[in-house]
Simulated assay, not measured.
Amino acid sequence: MNAQLPTGHSAVPSRKTGILLLNLGTPDATDYWSVRRYLEEFLSDPRVIETPRLIWWPLLNGVILSVRPQKAGANYAKIWDREENDSPLRVITRRQAEKLQAAFAGRDDVLVDYGMRYGNPSIKSAIERLHEAGCDRILLFPLYPQYSATTTGTANDQAFRALMKIRWQPAVRTVPAYFEDPGYVEVLARSITEGLAKLDFTPDLVITSYHGMPRSYIERGDPYYDQCHETTRLVGEHLGWEQDRLMVTFQSRFGPTEWLQPYTDETLESLPGKGIKKVAILAPAFSVDCIETLEEIEMEGRDLFMAAGGENYAYIPCLNDTPDGMKIIETIARRELSGWL
């Protein structure tokens, strides 16, 4: 005899909407094996490394994963949040999720969570939590103002992979790139104004350093390069600055291929020789401070610039979970949830 299937309203849970903040990820600790596990997952992603597997895999597993984790672990140790015993990226992303949840206080039908493309908490685990909590609609919010297949694309991919395993799938929306959003441009410009007001010097130049990528990715159709330049152009217009007061550079290049130029490190080394000895720098491609901003830009960038003859150097932090940073996240989330809430 067949078991009787449940009927009536009791079988249909109350409707809830989930907001899932997506970020890149971080090792769980700074030791060799923790960093190796993270780098292996990151550098195995074909969205990030488009080199043919036949060439890339022997190099990755034979050389890179033997040497790079130790150096990367030492760099993570420089910026590790000792109080939280965690990576700044995970600490701040978690706070963003908590504050966004608080912004929807009074609504028990909205749940906010966060997941990492690489490492923990995984995007898969976050989707499972939201689904088990009764969310039949989920807004995926990649925390990248400018779109790239290597960031927004792969984060969404991972979410879709998780959704493929769910029988009763929730409806899904993805937040589009917001590189030219007037609210984002405004708060980014304000962060520059407020950052400069705290300095005891006036910069000769303000640099907007974006994470780089191989030039070939742009040639294959990735819109990232143009969106980075557009963000900086719009911020400069909002500030009312002359074009030569703001500069775009690209950081974090890896391997022997040509990446987007000009390179941040080479620029910082060359500026003092051109008479530009006072610099402020920020990283608009990052919504959260991480190793690429706190170690590579704030620390290593300073060392390069000062060693080349620079006199003053200042790093302007990411928007993070500041009131302005949360304002733009909440505004975009509410806009993209239109019709659901």
Score class of each variant (00 low, 15 high):
Glu180Leu: 12
Met326Tyr: 10
Asp157Arg: 00
Glu180Gly: 15
Thr193Met: 10
Tyr178Glu: 14
Ile329Gly: 11
Gly25Leu: 08
Gly240Thr: 14
Ile92Lys: 07
Gly273Ile: 05
Phe160Trp: 13
Glu258Asp: 13
Ala189Phe: 03
Val235Tyr: 12
Gly73Val: 00
Arg190His: 09
Tyr315Val: 03
Glu242Lys: 10
Phe104Ser: 06
Arg129Ile: 01
Ile138Phe: 08
Asp109Ile: 04
Phe254Thr: 03
Arg53Lys: 14
Tyr224Phe: 08
Pro214Val: 01
Pro6Val: 09
Val288Lys: 08
Leu163Met: 00
Leu65Glu: 10
Thr232Val: 09
Val187Cys: 07
Arg173Asp: 10
Ala11Ser: 13
Val248Asn: 15
Ser338Glu: 11
Tyr313Gly: 03
Lys71Ser: 14
Gly310Ser: 01
Gly310Pro: 00
Ser338Leu: 05
Ala77Phe: 04
Leu239Val: 14
Ile49Cys: 07
Val175Arg: 11
Asp324Tyr: 09
Gly195Thr: 02
Pro323Glu: 11
Gly119Thr: 03
Thr30Lys: 05
Lys16Tyr: 04
Ile207Glu: 04
Ala162Arg: 00
Ser148Gly: 15
Leu199Arg: 06
Val67Glu: 15
Leu239Lys: 13
Pro323Val: 05
Trp80Ile: 04
Ser287Lys: 09
Gly273Tyr: 09
Lys124Pro: 02
Thr231Gly: 08
Thr51Tyr: 07
Val12Met: 09
Val288Pro: 13
Pro69Gln: 03
Thr7Arg: 15
Pro256Asp: 05
Ala314His: 02
Glu258Leu: 13
Arg220Ala: 12
Pro214Lys: 00
Asp244Trp: 10
Ala133Phe: 07
Gln96Ile: 06
Gln101Ser: 12
Leu268Ile: 09
